[in-house]
């Protein structure tokens, strides 16, 4: 589904991603861990098409398409979804209208008629139930005044509504209390299928207790320096990043 080859990207003169290689197949769950500032959010931003970052080398293909050639909205239409580490507040536009607009735009790009309001409301109610979201939330302004946890839950709600093929969850677990974590994890698990894939960026093992990854990668200094199975996350939790990063530092010293 997603192939990233030797991806190099940065901002101005600062190279942040220094050659990333990653392959994600349909049905898989990947976890990316790594110390602060290692480039995890940059990688997700580049995949989603944030033009602040300049791609200096390498390529990304998504279901056979050259992803780097597409605008952010076209990537979304093709099934890429990014749950933001820091979701943006948009005062003046309600959650329901925001979601309606994004679904309408996606359907338009696919040559489909706009969704009927009653179908949209039905779908929203289902997904709200799945994520234990309270009534009244739909008419609030997008992320405005939301608590950290509410913002994250709103990201997963949008994911549930947009049904992406590839979802990248950038620290969706941080800011969630233990109940919310379970609800969100449960939601992600229910939305899993053979046709979609999930990349989870996290600092904590606890989310991975609920969503068990097929692969775990350690990103450090703009490179994936170690990959393994679910057990790698446990090992990192025990030993910290040092045992991986020290070796890496030696290599580039």
């Amino acid at each position: 589904m997603l192939q990233i080859k030797d991806l190099k990207a940065g901002i101005e003169d600062n190279q942040i991603l220094k050659g990333i290689n990653l392959e994600v197949k349909a049905g898989e769950i990947h976890a990316i861990m790594g110390p602060n500032g290692s480039g995890k959010s940059t990688l997700s931003a580049v995949i989603a098409g944030n033009e602040d970052y300049e791609v200096e080398g390498g390529n990304i293909t998504f279901n056979g398409k050259d992803l780097l050639e597409l605008d952010p909205e076209e990537r979304a239409h093709n099934g890429v979804f990014l749950s933001f580490q820091y979701p943006v507040e948009i005062p003046g536009i309600s959650v329901s209208n925001f979601i309606k607009t994004s679904i309408t735009e996606k359907r338009k790009a696919q040559g489909l008629e706009p969704i009927l309001t009653k179908d949209l409301l039905k779908m929203m109610r289902e997904k709200m139930e799945l994520l234990s979201i309270k009534q009244g939330y739909l008419s609030r302004n997008m992320n405005e005044g939301f608590s950290g946890g509410e913002k994250k839950r709103n990201e997963i709600f949008q994911m549930a509504m947009l049904e992406p093929k590839l979802a990248i969850l950038d620290e969706t677990d941080s800011g969630l209390d233990i109940d919310a974590l379970r609800i969100v994890a449960n939601g992600v698990n229910k939305l899993r299928s053979e046709d979609n894939a999930t990349v989870i960026i996290t600092h904590y093992q606890r989310l991975l207790d609920y969503i068990v990854p097929d692969f775990v990668h350690v990103l450090y200094n703009g490179r994936i320096v170690k990959s393994g199975g679910a057990e790698l996350a446990h090992e990192l939790e025990e030993k910290g990043y040092d045992w991986v990063t020290k070796e890496e530092d030696k290599k580039w010293a």
């Binding site: 033009e51 605008d71 979304a76 948009i90 607009t101 994004s102 735009e105």
Partner: peptide
């Protein structure tokens, strides 16, 4: 960028943000 990443085309996103403003 947030809106575009949700599939909202740039022109529509600008208009919606202007409305919101």
């Amino acid at each position: 960028f947030y809106m575009r990443s949700r599939g909202i085309g740039i022109e529509e996103a600008k208009a919606v943000l202007t409305y919101a403003f």
